[in-house]
């Protein structure tokens, strides 16, 4: 049974912002299909009465005092920027809108 279509992979790639080539999409669709088929077995034992674990070691209320600490200089902030104007990061035109 093929669970993952090429259209689905293309949609996932757009969510993940990766401009996959057509070949990559084709290959990934079949690879993911195999992978998903073998990892879907988690559903066999994941019954309603089992709680989910998100953190391996349970901790709670881990806080930081509201005191100014580690701060970068503007130069440090921009040091790895592909493009900047000396103050801010420069990106090309934005098509979409804020969420």
């Amino acid at each position: 049974m093929s669970e993952i279509s090429e259209e689905q992979v293309a949609h996932l790639a757009s969510l993940a912002r990766i401009a996959l080539t057509d070949d990559e999409i084709t290959n990934l669709a079949s690879e993911l299909d195999q992978i998903v088929n073998s990892i879907a077995k988690v559903q066999e034992v994941a019954t309603d009465d089992v709680p989910a674990t998100s953190h391996p070691i349970p901790l709670r209320n881990v806080y930081r005092p509201d005191v100014v600490g580690d701060t970068l200089t503007q130069e440090q902030a921009l040091q790895n920027a592909p493009d900047d104007d000396g103050q801010r990061f420069v990106v090309s035109a934005i098509l979409g809108e804020e969420q």
């Binding site: 996932l12 993940a16 879907a40 988690v42 994941a46 709680p51 989910a52 998100s54 391996p56």
Partner: peptide, 24 residues
Amino acid sequence: ILGTYALSAGYYDAYYGSAQKVRT
């Protein structure tokens, strides 16, 4: 891509949610 799939709407409970239960 696999991770995006596992978290996407409609699949979360079946995959990511189940995996977290297996963790338990």
